[in-house]
Amino acid sequence: MSEIFTTAVLVAVVASAIRLAVPLLLAALGETFGQRSGVLNLGVDGIMLLGAFAGYYAVLKTGDVWLGLLSGAVVGFVLGLASAVIAVTLKAEQGISGIGVYLFGLGMSDLLFQKLVGTPIPIETFPPVRIPFLVDIPLIGDMFFRHSLVVYLAFAAIPLATFIINKTTFGMNIRAAGEYPEAADTLGVSISRVRYATEIIGGTLAGIAGAVLAISLGIFQQNLTNGAGFIAIALVYFGAWRPTGIMLGALLFGFVNALVLELKTLEIIPRDLSNLFAMAPALITILALVFVARRFQPPAALTKPFTRGK
């Protein structure tokens, strides 16, 4: 049991938690923009899958990981736009249409993989970036400052998203569209335009999240995300629609997963109880959701299509 208290284990668990958290964090941040403006997109996982394939395929063909990231972003942008057309212009029931987008992404990503690639072929991964000086700090350096550039960028997006949502006119319009769309409309805010913008931001970040996952793993496989998009949606509720809360949720989810893996490696968790502990991240998320639901309310206009004059 004393093995768990070693610094090596601590470093391994924290570094692993960060890696596991990043795709969730990016997708959940994007979904936050949409939900804060009143649009629920359950298709995040499908967008992530297509973003993952686009990123993987671009790297496979060019060897350029940044082109891969850009490809994931472009695919996410297009699917975000499509989601906006469905939810905002066509005013489709958001839950059902989101599931449609998910199923499209699940099927299309696999179809494209089968037709264009076939057997899994490894690709280049993001190179690690050692932050000068900081990487030399004992313990902290190994945990936080040996990751790839996308990891640092993902965490840098948290204060940026907080700033945009809370301190800019665009952010104010997003919040108004999600809470009081009729009032905002009378003040001249175009609810449709705001919701289009947030859906496109959400789609782009989901596409990037998928590309980050595939390029970090260096491989693509059918259903690569394994439901990460749905976890990202849960994290938006977990984080009470606030970027910092979402980051904490993503890190907690990653940490519990990493800890359980490490405890299995150290044989501290008996093999007979392995299944039980595998459920720990989901159980903790559900408990946290119950707690959040009692303290925080979702945006008042979430899932409600806006029609002027109604």
Binding site: L224, N257, L261, T265, A278
Partner: peptide, 23 residues
């Protein structure tokens, strides 16, 4: 050391399990 990740499809978790074993 055997690390069952309790999933047939979670590529990311399998990857982290390998990292943990190497660590």
């Amino acid at each position: 050391t055997i690390n069952y990740i309790d999933s047939f499809s979670d590529v990311a978790l399998a990857s982290e399990a390998a990292q943990s074993l190497i660590g």
